[in-house]
Amino acid sequence: MDIFLQQIVNGLVQGSIYALVALGYTMVYGIMGLINFAHGEVVMIGTLVTITVAGSLIKAGMPVALAALAGLSVSLLLCMALGWGLERIAYRPLRNAPRLTPLITAIGMSIVLQNLAMMIWGRNYLTFPALLPKVNFELAGAHFTFIQVVIVLLSGATMAGLLGLIYRTKLGMAMRATAQNPAVASLMGVNINRVIAAAFVIGSALGALAGVMVGTYYEIAHYQMGFMLGLKAFTAAVLGGIGNLAGAMLGGVLLGIIEALGAGYIGDLTGGFLGSHYQDIFAFIVLIVVLMFKPSGLFGEKTGDRA
């Protein structure tokens, strides 16, 4: 029972991070049908920038809280600019190109960003500065840390804010309209370019935040960290029904929990045949199974064929 509760807690934390990253994928996909492969790298850059900024400020003697805030802000702004730049420079010219073209571009950008990051930050694992105090709690047999609480609460608040933005503001309405039908939305006076740019900027901001959380949580970062994280997050988005915001959130949390439980119990389930290093396959197996029975994802809309 202890393991169960503990793994639920761990899964919830990891899942909140997946959810934040998944939102970036799902927004871009929902609006322009593009798998933005480079999104994981944006998360990675968000983490590494925070290390540099917050790390050097702390070294310079700035109070940790202030340095953390500064690091987060710089990383947010930089990633938003990066997201905006990616769309403007790499994807926008391909708006009417063949479907696979922007996908290859995204893969190319992902390679470029990863190697740029390697040139800047090197090949080695970097230590993430301790930005939050290390306090442990215990509840009903499960241990959790202050950091975990912050991650869950902050991502919850951020997602609530995002839903407010999408469903309560004019920009949000424009985004939803564009996702439904870009041609009609543009006839109705929606500035499609602005909407798409906004999706990238918002998604990148969420990604940067997630990156900082990952760094704080695992205390290390690496130029290749964005890849698997991005892959899992995208899986989460598809699991929830890609293009669907709530789906991405729930898909992320669900994936985190499934992974944690899977890793905790796989040994018992397979009689010790498979160990916890199979953790990474859970995401994909769950995905394949879900899509087999519910081809549009758990919460996705049915897209029927029209004759």
Binding site: L94, A97, T101, I104, T105, G108, M109, S110, I111, M119
Partner: peptide, 21 residues
Amino acid sequence: ESLRMLVFGLALVLVMRFKPA
């Protein structure tokens, strides 16, 4: 090694930009 991959990534982006098909 990373410069090589960087150039490779850029090549992908540029070809897709100017020769989308």
